[in-house]
Design a protein around this nucleic acid. Structure first.
Lengths: 182, 182, 182, 182
DNA sequence: AATGAATGAGGATTCATTCAT
DNA sequence: CATGAATGAATCCTCATTCAT
């Protein structure tokens, strides 16, 4: 309709619309029709560009995983020392738990898929691994692992809490988990 | 079909079947038909006992929330001192993250609902609050809050990890978060 | 619920609710459930008091026919001479075409039933006959017949018209139809 | 099923089947299933060609309104003088009130819809307006209006009457209403 | 290469009616 | 006498997918 013929952005537009729709209405309410409408493409496009709903979702979540990895990279690759790393982790938690809840919801949806289907677990493992690599630059592997879990929990609780905890508490938790017992 | 006319367990059976189905196939694949088949009740029963899918899901998740509260209560009400409480928390994390993944998956599904709809957030808040009450018997409020988030994260990571961490690591993380810096 | 046991008004209340519902939503949207809710009676009452939907509708429209006959009687039995009769007819037309459209809509619904099923035609014939008897006190049979049709048409057009004609026009039409050619 | 892939008459066939079904069984008994069966199209076609029952009914009645306008045009556009116009009106009344009752019943159903919903009132107004235009070629506006109502009433009464009046009476009524008092 | 047309399966829900109590 | 419980049939509508063009 716009570019006349063969629109290379078509696939990307569909994937973006898919993620938007999942974030807005949940995986349960996704359909080819709604995605097509959101992306402004004809319904027939959907199964032309993607073999079916499954492939479409897989590609959409791959895109999303890339985005999350980028967020982790942006926060965790810079810091020079342990203290800067702790601050960076706190920033990351607050970045992930604020805003439109979009990332949070998509993350949860992906976790559910991952719990049942290995193909999606690859995606979550990828970013967990990447996060681990960053954290291990500043902390020993066991600590990195614990910190990783803490990030997850803090993010989730902040997002679901009516009265979310402040950054000081986040930082304190991060500091405690990264500080070996006396 | 079996019991003749009035079957008081009918509602309960439907709710149990609903949770089972969600755990097995995910919220996205739930339908009246499948639930009815699983519960062994006629399709017409579904909207007789529950005004619609919404009410059905709400009641089912309320039931599930009650179950989770019971698990928290079972683990966290007994311990006598801080060290026993730390052990109990570690047990809780491993109890929640093992088994059929049923509880984990249902929890995630509920979180997603809660992220979008306040009616479901009440359920998650209820068990978060209950957990907090238990933990505050042994730790100060801020620590309880951090520990709560850590439990969440550790449970989730154990469940999603191909090579889940062992109990020693869990206990170490719990100990660190509940130990103020020197 | 109210009177404890055996409520003699029960039947009447159901019939009134039935007509209200038909007037509000149309025959097409009538159901036992909605009527029961409107009448404040249990659903089981419906098929206890009436053998089925058919009997219920027939009785309801019989009630309505009685009401319309009463309206005709009220307007047409009093007038003493032809001129008074003409005025009375004009009043009747305006009485029928104003108000909540309730009578108009019910009349049309009944006509449709009557067009297909003789049982309902008896009801319409009853009031047409009664009207004829009244009119023939003042006009010859052929004139009465023409006037009867005119009443119908004027009422209907007034009710459907966005800019309904005034009483003067009604009276003029009545006068013309009841005035033999020179 | 028959024509292979694209069947341009499909929509028309569905609309015709819809009107037939309404005429036969009444608006109250219309359903997608019955229409589809009558039109010889799969059930899924119904909501493909029409967004829902509402749109379907609106289009069907628009078609019907066009038909009625054509009947009015056919009878009322030809006559050259007032007397010819009176004869034409009488013919129209008898044309409308005879035959399969199809037109009568559909008209009544449409009136009921029009009484409740403005979208349908547009249709009835269209043909009332068209009729008025024709009649005003031979009669003054007030007379046209009265005549219009009379046509309605005569048609309806003829259709519902077990012993419908003859054409002479129709013509007499028409003549009276179009003849100013002495 | 791309899509509008088409459809069978399945979605939630409403319903009239039956019947044990 | 009266009714709450129950259900199979039917309701409208949405859907993923196929396919001729």
């Amino acid at each position: 309709m716009a570019t006349g013929h063969t629109d290379p952005q078509r696939r990307e537009r569909i994937l973006a619309a898919t993620l938007d729709l999942i974030a807005d209405e949940g995986l349960a309410h996704v359909s080819h029709r709604k995605i097509a409408a959101r992306a402004g493409v004809p319904l027939g496009s959907m199964t032309y560009h993607f073999s079916g709903m499954d492939e479409l979702l897989r590609e959409a979540f791959r895109r999303f995983a890339d985005h999350i990895v980028a967020v982790f990279d942006a926060h965790l690759s810079a810091p020079a020392d342990r203290d800067a790393a702790r601050e960076a982790v706190a920033d990351l938690v607050h970045a992930l738990s604020e805003g439109s809840q979009r990332d949070l919801v998509l993350t949860q949806e992906l976790y559910i898929l991952a719990a049942r289907r290995p193909a999606y677990r690859e995606l979550t493992h990828e970013w967990m691994g990447r996060s681990r690599v960053h954290l291990e630059k500043h902390f020993d592997p066991d600590t990195a692992r614990q910190l990783d879990a803490l990030i997850e929990g803090l993010t989730l609780h902040r997002a679901l809490d009516n009265d979310p905890h402040d950054r000081a508490l986040t930082l304190e938790a991060v500091t405690r988990i990264t500080t070996g017992r006396a």
